[in-house]
Structures are given as C-alpha cells and as structure tokens.
C-alpha cells in the first residue's frame, strides 16, 4: 500500500518547473515546498499560473522543464491516476463533478483507488466485491458526516446549489485519503456565509485528518486568515514565499496586484 517516506522531509517539492504553451510561458523556474500537514496558499493575479501549477502537480500537464517530487519520489511523467494513488487529490476551479451521479456515487468514485475487487468480482458480484463495496460506503459515510452532505446523499449533483457542489468536490477528493489536498479557488462564487463555513471545513480537514492543504488563488482575506505560509506567483514566477504578515507588506506583491487592478478595476481580487 502507501509507503511513508522519511517522516521529516518535505511532502512535495517543485524544483525549477517551467511550463510552456507554444510561445506563452505559463510557469518559469518555479520552486516550492509543501511540508506534511501544512496549510498553505498559492496566490497571484489572474493568469499568474496557479491552475497550471496544480495541473503539473496532478499530472494533467507535463512540465517542459524541472522536476516534481512527492514523498521523495519523482512524479512528473506519471499519469494522473498514478499520482492520485500516491496521495495527491484536488478540486477544480471550474467544478468538475460527475454531474449525472448522485452525491453518494461521486464520493464513492473517490474510493475507486481503494477498491480491492477486480472486474470479474464486480461482474459476478462476488463476496469479495460486496465486502469491498460495503467498506467503501462506510468510509464515505464519515466524509459525508464531516462535510454535512447527508441531506443530499441521493441527489444528482447537477441539481445541487453551487456552494454545495464545491463541497461535494472536496468530499470526493478527501475520499481518496490524500496526504496532500490541492484546492483551486475553492470559495469562488460562494456567498459570504458559505465562505465562512468553508474556512471551518478546511481547518477541520487539515487538523483532524492531518493532511497538507494548498489553496490556490481565492479570496485574499480568507487566504491571509488561514494560511500558515503563502507563495505568490506573478506571470509564472514565484515573487514571494513567506508567512502572511510578511507577504502582505511585500512591495513586489502589492505591485503585482495593483498592476492587475490598474488593468481591470472591476475584478478586485
């Protein structure tokens, strides 16, 4: 099963990663470290490369240069499902749920990695399949309790309100039992009340389950409030990496965000 590589070392190490789309440099020489159980954020103006970075880490994009290590093991080049099996889970900026499935089935898909029954077990509903399936359902139950999803257990996720859908996505990611959880703009489009709930949930997840959480982008006030550390990206480069109080006063960071506001005052951020 999952190995625990040297407890003290970093959990995730992004080393000199660059990502090129034709002429566009989405990421340039990015370095970043995540420690086990840490709650940190990657922020930056729109188009800074946050989503691209998450896509590299989860194997959806392949970096054009550099390496990514997880638990001491090189993961760039592995397929996304292999990376998920090693213990990295994520949510998407634009919700990517299995919209025709119920909440329960979405979370159960999160248990896919943990199924120890094969195709023929499923086809003939062997005892091994029943045992496995019941075990996954029990595990999903705990997650639904934790995220308060029981009331929508059998609802098709497409019919759920936006904030609830985001929560189902978090649940599906947690169901994989990751050691690292990447949340891409989790509070985007949420009401203030939902945002406040989300802060609690993220803290809960990080403290109770002891997993490392990386927030991408998102509501700046919220990020400042809950992050232990913040990495700032601007046009694909890391321009700051420190505790919130220091990052907040960094002139380079202020300039990056001001630049954006000057270009697009409506967007805020």
């Amino acid at each position: 099963m999952r190995e625990n590589h040297g407890g003290a070392g970093p959990l995730l190490e992004v080393r000199n990663v660059s990502l090129q789309f034709g002429g566009i440099a989405a990421l340039t020489d990015v370095n970043l470290t995540v420690h086990p159980g840490e709650l940190m954020s990657v922020i930056g103006p729109n188009g800074a490369g946050k989503t691209s970075l998450f896509n590299c880490i989860t194997g959806l994009y392949r970096p054009t240069a550099g390496d990514i290590f997880f638990g001491g093991r090189r993961i760039n080049g592995l397929t996304a499902d292999r990376i998920a099996a090693l213990g990295i889970a994520r949510t998407f900026q634009n919700i990517e749920l299995f919209s025709h499935m119920t909440t329960l089935d979405n979370l159960l898909l999160g248990r896919h990695l943990h199924m120890r029954a094969g195709f023929f077990d499923a086809a003939f509903a062997t005892r091994r399949w029943w045992r496995n399936e019941v075990a996954q359902r029990r595990r999903v139950e705990e997650i639904m309790d934790m995220l308060d999803l029981q009331s929508v257990r059998h609802r098709r996720v497409a019919s759920l309100p936006y904030g609830m859908q985001k929560l189902v996505e978090v649940g599906r990611a947690l169901a994989t039992e990751p050691r690292l959880l990447l949340l891409d703009e989790p509070s985007a489009g949420m009401t203030e009340e939902e945002k406040a709930d989300l802060v609690f949930t993220i803290r809960d997840v990080q403290e109770e389950l002891g997993i490392a959480v990386v927030l991408g982008g998102d509501d700046l006030r919220m990020v400042m409030e809950i992050s232990q550390r913040i990495v700032v990206l601007d046009r694909g480069r890391v321009i700051a990496d420190d505790v919130p109080a220091v990052v907040q006063k960094d002139p380079k960071v202020i300039e990056a965000y001001l630049g954006e506001e000057a270009m697009d005052p409506a967007r805020g951020a």
């Binding site: 998920a84 299995f98 896919h112």
Partner: peptide, 9 residues
C-alpha cells in the same frame, strides 16, 4: 480529467 485525478486509469 476529474476521473483521472481521482484515480481512474
């Protein structure tokens, strides 16, 4: 893509 990052080969 969601299937893939959730561990479906």
């Amino acid at each position: 893509i969601a299937a893939e990052v959730t561990g479906v080969n």
